[in-house]
Every structure is written in structure tokens, then in C-alpha cells.
Amino acid sequence: MKLCVLVKQVPGSESALRIASGNTWVEDAAALFEMNESDNYALEEALQIKESLGNDSEVVVVSMGPERVQKVIREALSKGADRGIHINEIPEIKSDPFATAQVFANVIKVENFDLIFSGLQSDDVGSGQTGVILGEMLGMATATLVMATEVQEGSIKVKRELESGWFQWVSMSTPASITIQSGINQPRYPSLKGIMGAKKKEMKVVDLSTAVTIEKQQSFANIYLPIADKKTEMIEGNVDQMVSRLVDVLKTEIKVL
């Protein structure tokens, strides 16, 4: 089976965010990048499927962005993915899931993947659409928010998360594009052997910026700090002072003591 994992490199949860000039994205230099959280679960799911199938199955990791994204591709290779494809960034489409999917579709259609995995949404743009649109463009079945997979030759059954603690099993023939919910598995750490081995694995770099027509649909026109609709009292001082003010708030303002 040929398995594809889309991974994205995003500013991590601890990263500083500084709005870049032009107000459409954040400054690269200020950010601490890491693999998008749910993509890490998607990668683990693909690796576990490959291992359970054994033999000639292959996991290919695909990421779009500037050169720095090769770091997350290498990370995936060191965990056991077989090869990587780095698609050079096309800056004007980074907040456009449709155009992003169009680029992925152009690059990977020749691979004839049986399964495409992606995280349910990115921590930067957060549209949660790319995996579904890509599947649709490639004529695949799709399923989102997946919490378990059962793969057989030619088909996959997935447990989809619905709302409020409900789930549903959905079956489909491959090829299929599946978006993975965080928590589906326990992502592994790379081993030292894996890290050494990753250096020898293939990383193909693709530049598409002039090769395809991209139909841009939407973008971040202007980003800014959220406007707080609440007035927040920041409680300051040393720990004892903060605790004393908190008790005061609980007693006299919220009235729960």
C-alpha cells in the first residue's frame, strides 16, 4: 500500500508571534516552529498501518513551505517514513486551503496513493479543509476527525468522532483521504538509529510556482491581535499577594466562598 502523510510546520504552542509587515502573516524569525500537532498523529497512524501490513508498503511525507520545512520532513523520516517531498512555498496561497490542495494534487497525483493522511486542522490557518478538498480533487473517498482505522487490502474502515461523545464507523474503498483527530494514538519519538538512517532517505524538492495555474479563493487580508470583548483584571504581585487577591475575588465578587 502507498500511504501519503501531509505534514505542516507551524509556530508551536509556546512560540512568540510577531505580525509581519503587510499584516497578512507572522514573522518567521520570531517563531519557534514544530510539526503541526494533529499531523504528528496522522504520521503515527500511517506508520502503524505500514508496520501492520508489513512487506512493500511505503509512507511518503509531503510538506509545503520554505526550506525550513525540510526539518519536519526529516523528523518524519527519522520516525520511519520512507521518503519525503518538499514543495516550495507559494507565499500568496498560504492561507488558502483550496489553492493549497490544488498544489498538493498537482504534485502527488502521479504517485497514485492508496491513502492520504492529514491532521484535522493546522494550528496556524486552522481551516481543516485541505485534506478533504485534496481527496475530492483526486476523486477519492474522504472522512474527517478519525479516531481509529482498520485497513484491509482495497478498503479502510474509520471511526469518526461526532459531537458530544458520539462516534460512527464509516467504510470506504481506497483510494481515500482521511483527516486524523489528535489523540488517536501515541506518537513515537525518533530513535537514534532512525535519526541516522533518515539522512540517507530521499527528499525530493518540487517547485511549482510557475508550473501550474492556481485558483486562489481566499486569504488572510489583515491579521491583528484579537479585540478582547471582556475587561480582564490581571492579578499581580508575589504568590502570596496573588493568592490573597484571588480569595478576595472568590469571596466578595464571584461569591462562591
Binding site: Q217, Q218, F220, I223, I227
Partner: peptide, 8 residues
């Protein structure tokens, strides 16, 4: 952050 969305 928040973003105003542009439509193409």
C-alpha cells in the same frame, strides 16, 4: 491572532 478574510 484574528484575521479578516479576503475573497478572490
Amino acid at each position: 491572532l484574528a484575521a479578516d478574510l479576503g475573497v478572490a
